[in-house]
Amino acid sequence: MSDALVQARGLRKSFGEVEAVRGIDVDVARGEVFGFLGPNGAGKSSTMRMIACVSPRSGGTLSVLGMDPGPDGPRIRARIGVVPQLDNLDAELSVRENLEIYGRYFGLPRRHVRAKADELLEFARLTERAGDRVEELSGGMKRRLTIARSLVNDPELLLLDEPTTGLDPQARHLLWDRLYRLKREGVTQIVTTHYMDEAEQLCDRLVVMDGGVVAAEGSPAELIGRYSTREVLELRFLPERRPSAGELGRHADRVEELPDRFLLYTADGERTLGDVAAAGFVPLSSLVRRSSLEDVFLRLTGRTLVD
């Protein structure tokens, strides 16, 4: 048996004229935490929904847990957990009922489901709200409930589409901790996120998608090594003393111009700062930091690049 829990080759999805996913190859190994990054409309959710066996593929091959989502959809779905981008809780049932009824879909006995609900309520910090109707919860609480619900069948593979959108920092850190523990238990995870720090924290490996194709693939460290420099110098200027990207570009490997600041990619940020000052450009403020996935993302997803 291959160790790839999810394997896609030339996977495509189109909605009429729109080609959301245009031939991607993905391998997710058992036990791995795998990420999809990309700007809005890149095709992340479309890919996740194909892997979740709810959306039939338009082309290519896909295997999940060693089975084909076409004929084996229900058997695959029985063994995975899904957090969709948009919550779909039953707002007119209580928090606890949502967990219990969801467990019943998976054929779990009532007694098991009740005990599981207790455990998941604790996990989502919703024990006090167990009897409340879901429509009375805050947005972040609903999100936590959706995440808890995805664990009701002890899934082997967990698909999380922007799981932490709408969560407060504390809840995010709690979730990261819980996901890390699930990983230690051997649960394979596929995550999409717009938070680069989250991707760096969680993912063993990730792909950056753009326009329905994979723009880059690797571990966070590999991607930073490949697509960015060791350090980044961030410079802000007064509008009237703002130099052009070209003028700054002479002193760095690469310059990224953002609305409010410049990012200068360089091996040694302090030295570049000295060079820039020596050339007569006086910034309002400066910051030297290490490169992050954010920089890789900026580079790969086509902001105005000035080399």
Binding site: R30, G31, P74, R75, R77, A78, R79, I80, Y105, F106, G107, L108, H112, N153, D154, P155, E156, R184, E185, G186, V187
Partner: peptide
Amino acid sequence: VPVPRSTGLAP
């Protein structure tokens, strides 16, 4: 790490 087993079943 032992491979986890899902408790879910298709109906």
